[in-house]
Design a protein around this nucleic acid. Structure first.
Length: 909
RNA sequence: GGGCGAUUGGCUCAGGGGCAGAGCACUUCCUUCACACGGAAGGGGUCGCUGGUUCAAAUCCAGCAUCGCCCACCA
């Protein structure tokens, strides 16, 4: 076995292990007892891995790695999303930089360019996922535009179309004039912008109550060209006289009616609202109710269409300026107010969206939302943390029909075919070129493509052979869990539940794990434009993948967002470091070094079962058994911060700080050469076996969080082939496939008595260290210690005598029941022991005297406060017996401590 | 407007009726043969504010303040 290098270099070890795992086919889907199926939330092909992905994938890997070690049937499906708008935007930009527009090259060549882009960049994120150590099935990646996937998408569309769930309609949609596509409500972003409220005068056809005009307030003066009415509130008595009258629309000269509608808020503006049904969702609703004409004044680029004189051909901003000027010049501009106006923006290109009347495809949701609600209220689908259930249910409750058409070229084209000759129309799973009705050949397909979420909603089953090979889903659907971010609970999670229930009659997953959003250190969202984003690959190159993963897991609490502590150079935007990840890196190094210590102390080792020789062994076994149960619990409940904390505390603060130190004596014992006895040699061997056992088990438990360093060490452990077997008993030499520790088998090792004994050791050793530090004694200064204890505790201390003397650097250790205070000793109460450290001649007792008096005062104050509680009748009557007993015990301990201090003061005075 | 979260040491965060915690940073000591990416010992907090419930509140409840997120609306 290769020697362990003095320092651990993740940059060398990690890539080599990835190659090894892949070469040995360890990532492949595995048969087994029990199932663990996870689909990776498909990142956009255009993307680079960001912190959200890194966290998402780390969580999934931890889940999958444990399941694999348990020899469950694991299937972790990899894939990417074609991301319609995102990809089209990038390809558009690329073409533009080459001096071509997509309109010039046409649809087919543009789609080819998108495929080229996909092939060129789709692999980047997959490589990054691989570098993180994610044990996803790289051999069978999915893509939402794969031919098989496309078939699934098409079947879903056709079935819903024929079942009457998909329909076409004229609707106001959020139109992006730059992407020239409809954007769903969920994809639009509101942003407050300083703007104005323009008060415009609309002349009445005939005066009303002596008034010759009404004043309307608008933030969009340019849309007045399309006005077909003026509305007032039915609750506004003063305005009722105007209802039924008409105004003459300036510029256009159209006579339009004044009517009353509940949409109008009498208190806003003047109480008169201009109504533009083709360019505002509310006005559209009023237009439908009142049968108003819907006049579209903009083309797809938000440029004023023909027929409006000099205003035609102007874009929105030009038209606004020109129209306001016109009103001003003609004395119809009443006044202008400043206002903060929230404007919808395209979440991709950030252009202001235009409410625009157009023909779109919709999914009717009334039949889908009931079952999808039921799946969650019944607990079949569970959210972790549970509170996200409410987000899901609220959204489901308010759900409106879903606009699924997008005016893009990149995506699944809507499979509806039209016959130009006879007007036939149908959704078809196969392309059609001859009309089945009239036999004509003038058949064309709908130009629109589907919303990206329409295809990704099928992700759990379309990636598993549905609909052509349903047997592939057998035993792997519903999937185990979906790990994702909270901002797509509605966009994606909810839609997966709806479509899965409809088409597979199953929920898509049992558990939905929502992790906190990672914010920058200042609490703002990480974003490219702000330059405050952290690239996970930078973290990996600075600290290694294990450290990044572990650091990320410590962040996964039930919070809804967390700040990542990375410092970024403001000028260069370079990552300077992250304390959290740095600490995780130190932990990786600690694991390496502790293991190196164990492995370099194995001379004469032969494998054998662990067996406790001392309370120290019993203690660490007990702690290990508890850790194992804790780790299982944390993974079962998706409590990753707790998982990381448990592992860290056990390995560093218990195993390294105390147990290994405790073992050093026994390991050295037999090295004394000729003097070594058989007994010392036996103790040494058993200590080695115990160390290997604890280390081996700990590495297995650490593996899902930190796969690399644990695998690198484990291959060097002197284990038998049986010990290396998989959980199902197959031969194996990878930790990744080795059997997961069985908590129920370790449970008998829990030993509360031994844990108490070991606490006594820590107390005595800790006290001597503390005394040395206080009096600036050399760490090498040996001290004589006396301990007064109960009979049982005295026995425990005797049991650990060797370890205490060694670790505490004692010249002598006297143990007894009711032992008197040795002269010249400093005393203290630690745990249930009175510890006397003899310091005659070593220190200045005046100093100690002053310190003791101060402590005594504090203890007396404490005693008073405890006595106050204990004399409180309410407390005695209502507190639980345990709490009262604890309090009494505390009082006794303070009293004892005071007694000790008094004795000490008497001694030193 | 509706909902949710946060507010605990200088920083990033745990905890969740009965002794206030971790990591980083800070102070002192230690290069002793696993580890200075280390060890040991320390200092540092009125748990956002105001009330209430309770024998007991950092923890539960109400209100307030600040920060943030989601949903809806915005002529």
């Amino acid at each position: 076995m290769e020697e362990m290098s003095k320092s651990y270099d993740p940059q060398a070890v990690e890539p080599a292990l990835i190659d090894k795992w892949l070469a040995e086919d360890a990532y492949k889907r595995r048969p087994g007892a029990g199932d663990c199926t996870v689909v990776i939330p498909p990142p956009n092909v255009t993307g680079m891995l960001h912190m959200g992905h890194a966290l998402d994938d780390t969580i999934q890997d931890a889940i999958v790695r444990r399941a694999r070690m348990q020899s469950k049937s694991t299937r972790w499906i990899l894939g990417t999303d074609h991301a319609g708008i995102a990809t089209q935007t990038k390809v558009d930009k690329k073409l533009k930089s080459e001096g071509v527009s997509r309109l010039e090259i046409g649809r087919d060549r543009f789609v080819d360019a998108c495929w080229d882009w996909t092939h060129q960049y789709g692999g980047i994120i997959v490589d990054q996922i691989k570098r993180m150590g994610c044990s996803v099935d790289f051999s069978d990646p999915k893509f939402t535009m794969d031919p098989a996937y496309a078939k699934a998408v098409r079947k879903v569309f056709c079935d819903w179309y024929h079942d009457g769930l998909i329909y076409r309609g004229n609707r106001i949609v959020n139109w992006c004039p730059s992407c020239t596509t409809a954007i769903s409500d969920d994809e639009a972003e509101y942003r407050d912008e300083p703007s104005h409220l323009w008060y415009l005068r609309y002349p009445l056809s005939e005066p009303v109550n002596g008034q010759s005009y009404v004043v309307v307030a608008t933030t969009r003066p340019e849309t007045m060209l399309g006005d077909t009415g003026v509305a007032v509130s039915p609750k506004d008595p003063e305005k009722q006289a105007f209802v039924g009258k008409t105004v003459v629309l300036p510029i256009v000269g159209r006579e339009i009616p004044i009517f009353s509608d509940y949409h109008v808020d009498a208190g806003f503006g003047t109480g008169f609202v201009k109504v533009t049904p083709a360019h505002d969702p509310n006005d559209y609703a009023m237009g439908v109710t009142h049968n108003l004409p819907m006049i579209n004044i903009f083309d797809e680029h938000a440029v004023v269409v023909e027929g409006y004189g000099r205003f035609s051909g102007m874009n929105r901003d030009e038209a606004r300026k020109a129209i306001v000027e016109w009103f001003d010049e003609n004395g119809l501009l009443d006044h202008i107010e400043d206002i903060n106006h929230s404007v919808m923006h395209c979440y991709r290109c950030d252009s202001a969206l235009e409410p625009w009347l157009s023909e779109q495809w919709f999914v009717a949701v009334d039949k889908l939302k009931g079952p999808a609600t039921e799946a969650v209220t019944s607990g079949q689908v569970q959210f972790h943390p549970d509170r996200w259930r409410q987000t899901y249910l609220t959204w489901m409750d308010n759900l409106k029909d879903w606009c699924i058409s997008r005016q893009l070229w990149w995506g699944h084209r809507i499979p509806v075919f039209y016959c130009d000759d006879c007007g036939w129309e149908d959704a078809c799973e196969q392309d059609v070129d001859t009309c089945p009705k009239c036999g004509g050949h003038h058949v064309h397909q709908d130009e629109n493509v589907l919303d990206t979420w329409f295809s990704s909603q099928l992700w759990t089953f379309a990636t598993q052979g549905w609909p052509e090979h349903p047997e592939q889903m057998q035993g792997h659907h519903p999937t185990t869990c979906l790990v994702t971010a909270r901002d797509i609970i509605a966009l994606w999670v909810a839609r997966m539940v709806m479509s899965s229930l409809y088409f597979t009659h199953e929920i898509p997953f049992h558990d939905v794990v929502i992790y906190p959003t990672i914010l920058a250190k200042d609490g703002s969202r990480m974003s490219k434009s702000k330059g405050n984003g952290v690239d996970p690959m930078d973290l990996i190159s600075m600290y290694g993948a294990d450290a990044m993963r572990f650091g990320l897991l410590t962040l996964v609490t039930s919070n809804q967002d967390v700040r990542f502590d990375a410092d970024i150079d403001k000028k260069t935007k370079k990552l300077l470091g992250s304390a959290r990840t740095e600490n995780a890196k130190a932990f990786v190094t600690k694991i390496w070094n502790a293991s190196r210590f164990v492995l370099t102390n194995l001379d004469g080792y032969t494998p054998g079962a662990p067996q406790a020789l001392t309370d120290a062994d019993k203690w660490i076994f007990s702690r290990l058994a508890k850790l194992c149960a804790e780790v299982d619990h944390d993974l079962d409940e998706y409590l990753f911060a707790d998982l990381a904390r448990s592992l860290y505390t056990f390995f560093w603060n218990e195993f390294c700080d105390w147990y290994i130190e405790c073992c050093k004596g026994a390991l050295r014992g037999a090295e004394a050469g000729e003097g070594a006895t058989d007994e010392a040699a036996r103790a040494r061997l058993q200590t080695q076996r115990n160390l290997v056992f604890v280390l081996d088990t700990a590495l297995r438990l650490l593996h899902p969080a930190m796969p690399f360093v644990t695998e690198a060490i484990w291959e060097r452990l002197p284990l038998t082939p049986e010990q290396r077997q998989t959980a199902s008993g197959e031969a194996n030499d990878l930790l990744m496939l080795a059997a997961w520790p069985d908590a129920s088998k370790l449970a008998p090792m829990v030993d509360e008595r031994a844990e108490h004994s070991f606490d006594l050791l820590c107390a005595i050793v800790g006290r001597t260290r503390s005394v040395r530090a206080r009096y600036a004694l050399s760490p090498r200064q040996e001290l004589a210690v006396a301990v007064s204890a109960s009979a049982q505790d005295a026995e425990s201390v005797e049991q650990l005598r060797e370890q205490i003397v060694e670790m505490g650097r004692l010249s002598s250790l006297t143990v007894g029941v009711d032992l008197p205070k040795p002269a010249g000793s400093v005393s203290s109460l630690d745990e249930s022991l009175k510890v006397y450290v003899e310091l005659s001649g070593l220190v200045d007792f005046d100093k100690e005297l002053a310190r003791t008096r101060k402590l005594l005062e504090k203890a007396q104050r404490e005693l008073e406060s405890v006595d106050k509680v204990l004399s409180n009748q309410g407390f005695l009557a209502k507190a639980t017996p345990e709490v009262i007993a604890d309090k009494k015990e505390k009082r006794a301990s303070i009293a004892e401590s005071i007694e000790l201090m008094n004795a000490q003061i008497a001694d030193f005075s």
